[in-house]
Design a protein around this nucleic acid. Sequence first.
DNA 1: GCGTTCCATATCTCCAGGGATATCAGACCG
DNA 2: CGGTCTGATATCCCTGGAGATATGGAACGC
Lengths: 303, 303
Amino acid sequence: MERPELPLPQLHAFVVLAEELHFGHAAARLGIAQPPLSQQIRRLEDKVGHPLFRRDPGGAALTPAGRELLPAARRALTDLADALAAARAVGSGEAGRLRIGFSASLALTVLPGLLDTFRQRSPAVRLDVREMTSAPQVAALLERTVDVGLLREPPADEPRLRFRTVLTEPFVAVLPAHHPLAGRRTVRLERLADEPFVLLPREEGPQLYDRITGLCAGAGFTPAIAQHAVEWQTVCALVGAGLGVSLAPESIRRIRLRGVAFRRIEPGTARTRVAVAWRADDPDPLVHRLLEAVGDGHPAWNG
Amino acid sequence: MERPELPLPQLHAFVVLAEELHFGHAAARLGIAQPPLSQQIRRLEDKVGHPLFRRDPGGAALTPAGRELLPAARRALTDLADALAAARAVGSGEAGRLRIGFSASLALTVLPGLLDTFRQRSPAVRLDVREMTSAPQVAALLERTVDVGLLREPPADEPRLRFRTVLTEPFVAVLPAHHPLAGRRTVRLERLADEPFVLLPREEGPQLYDRITGLCAGAGFTPAIAQHAVEWQTVCALVGAGLGVSLAPESIRRIRLRGVAFRRIEPGTARTRVAVAWRADDPDPLVHRLLEAVGDGHPAWNG
DNA sequence: GCGTTCCATATCTCCAGGGATATCAGACCG
DNA sequence: CGGTCTGATATCCCTGGAGATATGGAACGC
């Protein structure tokens, strides 16, 4: 690509003159006097090396060379004006694209409300929403394949990212419906000590995993993992099939499955955090718009 | 169309930097020092109102706004460069379009050679060739629907046009083959005094028409027009059918038709001119290129 | 013939933009 | 901790473009 030879202001004058075919009128439309316009055109013609207009009494007319130049000049001007407007819209966060990763368990709780308020405020923004567990979200944020994450139990040792808590919720025990413990309103944690557990694999979300095993440790036992499943949906299904019990954030109660019971646990103080995550240095205004939406549009969700 | 806000040099710098993603390298490619490049980019970002690049150690990266602007900037630059080259080609006569009107009687004589030499010299030029009689050619030249005309007997009273003689040729008598006069090598003009004539209508080419009737007048008679026809081809056919005789430029001998005889006339001094015509004020280089082709490429045509 | 219209020329002012050099500041690395 | 990347800042110069006003000159119409 070589350095541009034709200044845009001259091309602008050229296009307007080509439309008016009259130096006086064109100058008026450009908001300048007539002699400067003559100069602009002359300079442009000098650079092209050939006349672009025939001047005859009564007006001007394009030469073949001028006819050749006109469409490109017009296109370049409108293209640039459009692109500038688009770039400004993107820059100001009125338009663009935002890639959001989210944990599947949030698809039925915070996510819909969040997307809703955001879309209402920024209808021109395209949202790419992709389901992924916590650890991949962190990785995706760092390698910039995702702009915002919505995850559980944000890692504390990640200074390149920022987190903001969206909500906290208690844990519940997930039990087969026919299980003896399902007969009571609440379940004491230590009663699960001898039960086989069904959990997400630790790699998918180390923080949440450690949180859960930590709860068990607090109740004096180490859970025996009988089975892994990568989605809460599956965890519940396996519990319902009698493969074991589980501990889960309360919001997965939304997953209604035959043969599965959810019970509050005792002590009920332990809560799990759901947070939005973003790159600490990300200047993208869309990210900050989304954060506002998180702050304001408080989830119409209650347990 | 509003006045352009983004100077092309800055967009050029922007595109190069977007390709290099490195201020130093981009500056080198632009042939300038690094600080000026930083300034260019900053000025551009100021005008857009938003940053276009993230600067991080190890290089630069496009922001969403920058990504939005890039394709249009690139397109505008290449479009303009291409259009400039095209306009220069057209302006210098290396390319473009030339609209040529010609009298049908020349299609078999001067026209092919002329087009041939011109096309060899200017292969990138598109030629629009359209058949039309003399008077319409003059009109088309004046209203600029044709750039060059190739016609017989150029009018003398048309100062807005210029003419250059391509060739002159004698007249011949067109006779039915069985006509008594066809028995001799030559025909004295006054022998045609009592014959019915077939001619082109005067409106199609007043000069030639007047030339022919003038010849008759010189021989002491006024021809009786029995029939009009708008093409020489048709004139000959009508003569062959016995509707009359005619006087025509020698080159129409090329039209070989059964039952038609061509004979030189006496006196044989009268000749008809074929000329190229163009607008006196036409600056189009293609026109002048064609005139050169007329001058040089002397018709490989001999009666 | 004279005024009008339309564009060109001549001249001047002004300033934004592009360029250079020198220097600074942060991040990374051995 | 100093060297080496990165890009940013600070100054300065200078050109060229864009604007204005005043005037000239050709073509057309009444």
